[in-house]
Design a binder for these strands. Structure first.
Length: 429
RNA sequence: GCCCCGAUAGUGUAGCGGCCUAUCAUACGGGCCUGUCGAGCCCGUGACAUGGGUUCAAAUCCCGUUCGGGGCGCCA
């Protein structure tokens, strides 16, 4: 018999025989009747087994929580259960038995340590509240994808195994590539720019980025999902417009498809209004200095500084016109003030989620910027070549998907938004 | 790389020199209960990360080790 998802049990099914499949959430055995709460991705249903009736095929005493089973029975017109839908079982197939006791509670409202949860992630993710994070993340990404698609972007995939570092400074994971040394790419930056030279006009990529920084915080991962775009014949203003549009579209989509199986409360941000405020770096600098923060022009804001700024701008906002010493070699300087750049970060309160800019498109300027940053242009020949034969002005950004998901769902630790997070000490599972 | 902090049953916790053959909740095993729905009641199993030291006495104090958490730096 065809399987029915628990969420599909509606008035149309009343009085009919249905088959549901899932995991045993909970078992309650009374003298004359047994109740089995059966859970699938979409919800929980109560399976009622009356002891007076004909045998249903299995020994109920052998059932354990989280075992997998198939139940066929009536979805009765008269629903006695007060809290959830109910099926009266006529046949139960035990498809697989779960060992006991469980290394992690699935049905209980007992919060386990993140460490314990991640060690048993397969079980942890059976909790609907955790599944909801990834359901939301998926819808967030789809919303962003569809926005970019409708604005003429083509989705591309660039190599993650590369010969040289993207920006020089950051630590990379080294890998052995046959007889050569290679690295895991920290960003698709150079490749997406090359594709602008190739005339793709507008590209975006969703893929992993690797950073070998030994950071130990609740908002860093060593492998994260980067959403990167690059657009030709465009400047930083165009890129910012595309970014705020993407974020809004992603959040709209996440909200309109919010997963709710009923046994938890999903909290989400409201759809933000556009445009996001644009605040220049110099203005942020004065704000921090006025609040007593010790910081000079040319220095990056620390967490305390960003908290000061975030109090003034509690939602999404851009910090623009960053000093050139804080930005990578490919960032275009401000034509009106060469100590500044046509760059921006997207912030949510004190959290940075995106970094972007108009890029340098003149090969000679790019060469000078390499040297100024202490990099050897010879190491980036494959990249520079793309600029020598007709590179349009262009701009783009890179957005940390896990950080955006974390903000959307108000989660305290970024590891919650990664199925199998890679941090300073974790590579398993 | 730097600075703080922590480790007690399957899970989450209390205890912080003798009252600890270690608390509570939940899970797990057994029993009771005419449909439960955060079910209830009774009984039971189950833990002081590890190696040293201090002390008459260590879960408790000190040191090392292992594992973990948080913050900073850096960034998405």
């Amino acid at each position: 018999m065809k399987r029915t998802l628990i969420s599909e049990l509606d008035n149309d099914h009343l009085g009919k025989t249905v088959t549901v499949e899932g995991w045993i959430h909970e078992i309650k055995r009374l003298k004359s009747v047994d109740f089995i709460m059966l859970r699938d991705k979409t919800g929980i249903v109560q399976v009622t087994v009356k002891k007076t009736e004909t045998p249903i095929g299995i020994d109920l005493g052998s059932l354990t929580r989280e075992s997998v089973m198939r139940v066929t029975g009536e979805f009765p017109e008269k629903q006695i259960s007060k809290k959830m839908k109910e099926i009266t079982a006529s046949k139960i197939d035990l498809l697989n038995v779960a060992a006991t006791p469980l290394p992690l509670p699935v049905a209980e409202n007992i919060e386990s340590d993140l460490e314990t949860r991640l060690n048993n992630r397969f079980l942890d993710l059976r909790r609907h509240e955790n599944y909801a994070i990834f359901h939301t993340k998926s819808n967030l990404l789809w919303g962003i994808r569809s926005f970019l698609h409708t604005h003429g972007f083509v989705e591309v995939n660039t190599p993650k195994i590369v010969a040289s570092s993207t920006e020089g400074g950051a630590d990379l994971f080294r890998v052995q590539y046959f007889e050569m040394d290679a690295y895991l790419n920290q960003s698709p930056q150079l490749y997406k720019e090359i594709l602008i030279s190739s005339g793709f006009e507008r590209v975006f990529e969703v893929g992993p980025a690797f950073r070998a920084e030994k950071h130990n915080t609740t908002y860093h991962l060593n492998e994260f999902t980067s959403i990167d775009i690059e657009m030709g014949f465009s400047n930083h203003e165009d890129a910012m417009a595309m970014l705020e549009g993407s974020v809004k579209s992603g959040i709209e989509n996440a909200l309109s498809h919010a997963h709710n199986s009923g046994n938890y409360q999903l909290r989400m941000l409201e759809v933000p209004e556009l445009p996001f405020p644009r605040v220049e770096y110099s203005k942020c600098l004065s704000m921090v200095q006025n609040a007593g923060g010790k910081i000079e022009f040319g220095e990056d804001f620390g967490p305390e500084h960003l908290r000061v700024i975030g109090e003034k701008y509690p939602g999404f906002y851009f910090i623009t016109k960053w000093p050139s010493e804080l930005r990578p070699f490919y960032t275009m300087v401000d034509p009106d003030d060469e100590t500044l750049t046509n760059s921006f970060d997207l912030q949510f309160r004190e959290r940075e989620i995106t970094s972007g800019a108009q890029r340098v498109h003149d090969p000679e300027m790019l060469r000078r910027r390499f040297v100024a940053k202490g990099l050897n242009p010879e190491d980036f020949q494959f990249y520079l070549n793309a600029f020598r034969y007709g590179m349009p002005p262009h701009a783009g950004w890179g957005l940390g998907l896990e950080r955006l998901a974390m903000i959307l769902l108000d989660l305290k630790n970024i590891r919650e938004t990664s199925l199998f997070p890679r941090d300073r000490t974790r590579i398993v599972p």
